[in-house]
Amino acid sequence: MSTTENTPPFIPFTRPHFNQETIDAVAEVLRSGWVTSGPKLAEFEASLSEYFGGRPVRCFANGTATMKIALQVAGIGPGDEVITTPISWVATSNVILSVGATPVFVDIDPHTRNIDLSKVAAAISPKTRAIMPVYLAGLPVDMDQLYSLAKQYQLRVIEDAAQAFGSQWKGQKIGSIGDLVSFSFQANKNLSTVEGGCLVLNNVDEAKLAEKFRLQGLTRQGMDGMDVDILGGKDNLTDVNAVIGLHQLKQLPAFQSRRTALARQYFDVIRAEMKSAGLDDLHLELPLENFTDSNWHMFQVVLPLEQLNVDRAQVMTELKDLGIGTGVHYPAITGFTLYQKLGYRTDSTPIAQRIGRSILTLPLFPGMADEDIGRIASALTGILKKHRKS
């Protein structure tokens, strides 16, 4: 959108930040002649391992590969069931299908918008092998309850922590505890390598197995030839991506501090705007206000569509016309055509259906200005007031 003196700049819902030091480091890697997996990848994996308290870490080309390989490392395959949430990027359940297993969807908690762990036990069958929780917008589930369930029913846990890099549970970093933990480094994540991801594993044997799945099942190569003993893929991360990750990791504390400050402003300003506009009775659902555990990857509200004369798409269009970008994260997976064809029903997870129709992601990234929060809150409140049912 072009800007004039009277038109404020467009605010996207997210924007990655790469400083000049990072750009120079990428140029250095390109000049080195070693641009695929090499010394920078090894350095990045070592730095991540240190960040996670010494646990083995392996990086991959994207966060989808990390989840699929986590399932493979855990031995999940045809005939197995994996319990997960219907509110996530569809990759979460797609990877379960890709290894031949069956996703079992459990409805969400309306406050956290994560899987409702109190409903998991009822979904466990003799075929259940694992549970794959998703930490929506960076907020983890109750880890104590999660691992108590896993222990009781002898399940593997594959944490889809794609959005949760930098989040904590009772003062411990997500990834430093637990079973298999998958992170994404896609462009809009709190730590980005443009595309990429990592998997935190339990021991050296799992790490070696993940390496084989990462590169065509290769067990050895060199002067003595090579061998392949499992079916792998081509999911390695390059040194170009890795060096970006190294520099993002250095900046993570500053990024996190800024995200937290912006999220605090959102709560204060939205509430003040709603009160000033006489909209206290409008049921705009803000996120769970938890500044201890969340990394504030996204700030999401749930629109009170039953109290409005417009749908979410119209609200998003009007915000865009005011120079404000928004996102939808996410529609319930069970409503997608693929999953309907597989026999999944939308009425089996009613809370997820409601949230999926109504959730709206507002802009949140470290490069935002303080005044952007007020502008966004004012615009959203004005639209709600204009379209509320009488």
Rank of each mutant, 00 (worst) to 15 (best):
S2R: 13
T7R: 03
I11W: 01
T14L: 13
R15F: 12
H17Y: 12
F18I: 12
F18S: 12
Q20Y: 09
E21D: 10
I23G: 10
V26M: 07
R31C: 07
R31A: 11
S37K: 04
G38H: 00
S47E: 15
F52K: 01
G54N: 06
V57L: 12
V57R: 01
V57M: 10
C59G: 01
C59A: 08
A61V: 11
K68P: 01
Q72K: 15
G77I: 10
G77D: 09
P78W: 04
P86H: 03
S88K: 03
S93M: 06
V99F: 06
G100P: 05
T102H: 09
T102E: 04
V104S: 00
D107G: 09
D107C: 13
I108G: 04
T112K: 03
D116W: 03
L117A: 08
L117R: 07
A121V: 15
T128Y: 00
A130F: 07
I131R: 01
I131G: 00
P133G: 07
V134P: 00
Y135Q: 01
G138C: 05
G138W: 06
P140R: 04
Y147K: 05
R156L: 06
I158P: 02
D160S: 10
F165N: 02
W169M: 07
K173H: 14
L180N: 03
L180S: 01
Q186I: 13
A187C: 15
G196P: 09
C198E: 05
C198H: 07
L201H: 04
V204M: 14
E206W: 11
K208L: 15
L209F: 07
L209T: 08
E211P: 05
F213S: 00
R214A: 04
L218V: 11
G222R: 03
M223P: 10
L231Y: 15
N236G: 14
V243F: 07
G245I: 00
H247G: 10
Q251T: 02
Q251L: 12
L252C: 02
Q256S: 15
S257Y: 12
T260D: 14
T260Y: 06
Q265D: 06
A272K: 14
H283D: 08
E289C: 13
E289Q: 14
N290V: 14
M298V: 13
F299Q: 01
Q300F: 04
P304D: 03
V310H: 13
Q314C: 12
V315Q: 01
V315C: 07
T317D: 11
T317H: 09
P331W: 02
T337L: 08
Y344S: 05
T346Y: 08
I351R: 15
I351H: 10
A352S: 08
Q353P: 08
G356T: 05
S358C: 14
T361L: 06
P366R: 09
G367R: 14
D370S: 15
G374I: 06
A377T: 02
G382H: 04
I383E: 02
H387L: 11
